[in-house]
Amino acid sequence: MRVLVVGATGFVGGRLIESLRSAGHDVVAFSRSASRSGFPADVETFEGDLGDPASLEGLCEDVDVAYYLIHSLTAENFAELDRTYARRFRELASAAGVDRVIYLSGISGDERNLSPHLASRREVESVLEVGRFDLTVLRAAIIIGAGSASFRIVDDLTDRLPVMAVPKWVRTPCQPIGIDDAVAYLVGVLDVEETRGRIYDIGGPTVWSYESLLQLTAEEKGKRILIVPVPVMSPRLSSHWLRLTTDVQYAIAQPLVESMRNPVTVDPERDLQSVVPIERTPIEIAVRRALAEG
């Protein structure tokens, strides 16, 4: 199968390409820096920019399946850009006869009072679902792995603040997933026809809070931290607090932390594990691996 990965040089994209190659697929890697990213010789690279239509000619030709992994968090108008890019890709894929598109989105709990980041993810889903291809959406919470911006925030906090006065969202429930499991699900849906045209949640085997995830990460590094939730600190205010506590680019950290007000746990009725069963990695092990690789 000829598979296109849009966003190939990102945190998920590079790992996904490795797994697709191992599964015997022919892979096309697309990004703005694809030709300079050191992909194996058997990976075809396509360098272009979804913001520049002239650079996209032929992108989806002879492609059976495309993974869409684009999120424009570094721009102030990221929602507008994500909408434009998704429409542009939808038209290219539809015109070329792409059979399936798989989009990695985000869990957002009860779908009410969504952060701008999660609302944008939903909008991209809506844009893609009207294409002339079968769309599969996988929604994930925080993905644990070296290179994950969300996990980097957690890691940085445990390095810098032995005593933390933190926003009350630290007690929001979340269901993180290790990067290896996220990739296994992304590849696994290709072999399960019933996943066409469906939306699924993906998560690890256990539910955590951000507070317990911080404690776990600190313990894995041999540290002890004291966390004191402060109820008056709003998600928007706490995003400015991140400027002092993490090296993650602020334009990325701000929308991510604003999303932490939403409970992000797997809905049992949409749990991909019931359709594509994998041996899920305990989050303790996923954190240990991420720290070792970071």
Rank of each mutant, 00 (worst) to 15 (best):
Y185Q: 00
Y103A: 01
P231Y: 14
I17H: 00
T217L: 12
N77P: 05
V130F: 03
L81Y: 08
P263T: 12
D247Y: 08
G188L: 13
T9P: 04
L16H: 00
G14H: 09
R171G: 15
S239T: 14
V163S: 11
T281K: 14
G13P: 05
R261I: 11
A292C: 09
S239H: 08
Q273N: 07
N113M: 09
S55L: 15
D271F: 03
P231R: 09
V137E: 02
S31W: 04
W241G: 04
E18Y: 01
P282A: 11
T172C: 07
Y85G: 04
D155R: 15
V28I: 15
D134M: 10
I144C: 05
Q175R: 07
E211R: 15
E47T: 15
L214Q: 03
E111S: 04
S209D: 09
L214T: 02
S105R: 05
K221Y: 00
L256G: 01
L56I: 12
V230Y: 04
Y103P: 02
R100W: 02
G294P: 05
P235N: 08
R160S: 06
R122P: 00
V170G: 01
Y67Q: 00
V12P: 00
F151S: 09
I199T: 13
I285T: 13
E125Q: 11
T84S: 13
L59K: 08
T158G: 08
L214C: 02
D181M: 15
G10D: 05
G203T: 10
R90I: 10
Q254T: 09
A29M: 07
A41M: 11
R112F: 03
L128A: 06
K221G: 01
L135C: 05
V266M: 07
A79F: 02
G131Q: 07
Y67G: 00
S238D: 07
D134P: 02
S55E: 13
S238G: 09
L213Y: 10
L161M: 15
L190Q: 02
Q273F: 02
D49E: 03
V27E: 00
A141K: 08
A41Q: 14
V163E: 06
D134H: 12
G294V: 14
L157Y: 07
L213K: 10
I285Y: 05
L216A: 02
T195C: 08
A79Q: 11
W241F: 14
L214H: 03
S72A: 13
I107K: 09
G203E: 07
V266Y: 03
E219T: 11
R15W: 03
A290C: 11
D247P: 06
Q254D: 11
G7R: 00
L161K: 14
S105W: 08
W169K: 06
D42I: 15
R15T: 04
S35E: 13
P53T: 11
C60K: 06
S238E: 10
M233T: 12
P231N: 05
I283Y: 07
P205S: 10
E219I: 12
A286G: 06
L291N: 08
F11P: 01
M1C: 11
